[in-house]
Write a protein that binds this DNA or RNA. Structure first.
Length: 257
DNA sequence: ATGGCACGGCAACCGTGA
């Protein structure tokens, strides 16, 4: 099974990139974040022409997530349980081939002052509760997407962010660690315990040519799935495309169908 | 030491991103 997560920073701008990548890589599931449109504006026909079905949770202008799959998925949730009604379009969960797949776009937390940061922490608490419920149900599952968390100092270029940035603040990192302590496996770090493995480079200040990036896109695996883990790595070459997203795909392969 | 960008949106800059 081959899965990938990719924050595309507008699907309408990145549709050709996604189409090329799908044709070349043929994943079983592609999790998209920041589609930045409502479901009616999602270029679904382009992907169905390539043999992919789309589950889209969108909103105008901001956020938005989608899951593209070759087989027919069962939709489980269209928003993260435990959040207020009318929440932003940041979560979609499906079942596919015996695996529950949660696709998430966690709030950045740097806008909106203290309340904005608290909303990020609340979102992480709801994610923790969802992970605990999935573990209790003994399903195989993966929670993947743009977490907007640099888990450790190895996950950002030195000096790139200040200590009070919402991506690295202690409460942010503590909540990410809590997910791991539940028994989830950070797929990339399980196979590549040290060193940089960035998934994002800012458009500004020559970050990409100087390789000053962040590892903020992650895939967390339930225990039985972690035992099937074969590979996990960012597709850095996508950052060199014409008019690229500022994120690249994180690709995970698992033994078995 | 610091810094230069991109996207959507009832339409001229602004909120947001990270």
């Amino acid at each position: 099974m081959k899965l990938a997560t990719w924050n595309v920073n507008s699907i309408r701008q990145r549709e050709p990139h996604v189409e090329r990548w799908l044709q070349r890589e043929q994943p079983d599931a592609l999790l998209l974040q920041e589609i930045k449109c409502e479901e009616s504006a999602f270029p679904q026909a382009r992907f169905t022409a390539l043999g992919y079905q789309c589950v889209v949770v969108g909103q105008k202008s901001y956020n938005g997530v989608a899951i593209l799959t070759r087989a027919t998925p069962q939709v489980i949730h269209r928003q993260l349980p435990g959040l207020p009604d009318g929440a932003q379009a940041r979560y979609v969960e499906v079942a596919l081939g015996g695996v529950t797949i949660g696709n998430l776009y966690l709030p950045n937390g740097n806008s909106g002052g203290d309340a904005g940061y608290q909303a990020k922490l609340d979102w992480m608490d709801a994610l923790q509760a969802r992970a605990a419920a999935l573990l209790a149900s003994e399903q195989d599952f993966v929670l993947a997407g743009d977490f907007n968390v640099c888990p450790t100092a190895a996950d950002l270029a030195p000096g790139l962010l200040s200590d009070d940035d919402a991506l690295v603040r202690p409460k942010t990192r503590r909540r990410f660690r809590s997910l791991l302590w539940l028994g989830l496996t950070d797929a990339l770090r399980a196979l590549h315990p040290t060193g940089a493995a960035y998934t994002f480079w800012d458009y500004q200040a020559g970050c990409w040519p100087r390789d000053r990036g962040l590892r903020i896109d992650h895939a967390l695996l339930s225990p039985a799935l972690a035992e099937r883990l074969l590979s996990a790595w960012p597709h850095r070459a996508e950052r060199d495309a014409q008019l690229p997203s500022d994120h690249v795909p994180l690709v995970v392969t698992l033994d078995g169908p």
